[in-house]
Amino acid sequence: MTDLLDPRATTAQPAPPPTSGTSPGTGRARLGRFLRRRPGLVVSVLVIVFVLVSAVFPAVFAPGDPNLAIPRQRSLPPGPGHWFGTDYLGRDMWTRVVHGTSLSLQATLTAVAVALVVGGLIGLLAGFVGGWVDEVLMRVVDVLLAIPPILLALALIAALGFGTTNVAIAVGIASVAQFARVMRAETLRVRGTVYVEAARAVGTRWWVSLGRHVLPNAAGPVLVLAVLEFGLAILAVSSLSFLGYGAPPPAPEWGSLVAEGRNYLATSWWMCAMPGLTIAATVLSVNRVSKALDGEWGRDR
């Protein structure tokens, strides 16, 4: 996240005139300008920081017990004391949402990691080796792309069984094809650039070239995709939890909280609305950051 706040990475000015280094004063001024110019991005970063802290130390924002039911306080609408209202058993929704972050985020991270590692390796191999290896791997990827990701994830869940981990793995595998495609395209692009041939022409060995030229230059768009995928994975994981394939109750998880609230939709809208809003805000923020990164990392090319 610190890269985001690096002022050099966020202002699109042409190269500064030949003076070396930026003094801390101008750096701070630029940071200030950045905060004023792009409030949406700043809010997005704050939301993500909040979500990350909630996942690791939920007690910071919600010291209570997420499973503590107080029958007297059943189905209270949002208000002082209960920012997100209470549920049908009298549990505080805010506490449940904050404590549910951990499970949702773990599943999301697992999914992204699976997609990034497996898809990235397939794409890198296909793009760098080429020939029949490329041909075979990409045909497999084409087939995976022919099946909508959610259906592929459902098939995997049917095979692997229920639970948060299985949901995460299923969502990750369902996105492998996307990553493989982008990684392959980037590898091919960088491998075809003149500077990689120039490296070969000065006698650099191919594996040195792979590590020093191809990977660093191909990584940008793949990492942008990973951030974007993070948002998509939150949606996919919460959808599957909503359908009932995730963590069994009473463990709080964003998607299953919405599913629980569904039965009280007519009378107590907040039981559905609040966890859903949390998901929406997180995904929006992640997408906003991914867009900003795309702009920054895209400029190098």
Binding site: G231, L235, S238, S239, F242, G255, V258, R262, L265, A266, W269, C272, A273, G276, I279, A280, V283, L284, N287
Partner: peptide
């Protein structure tokens, strides 16, 4: 905005 919203939640909010 539209791609950031969970579909199941949008449906429930429309029903509500």
């Amino acid at each position: 905005l539209a791609v950031s919203l969970p579909v199941f939640w949008v449906g429930l909010m429309l029903v509500q």
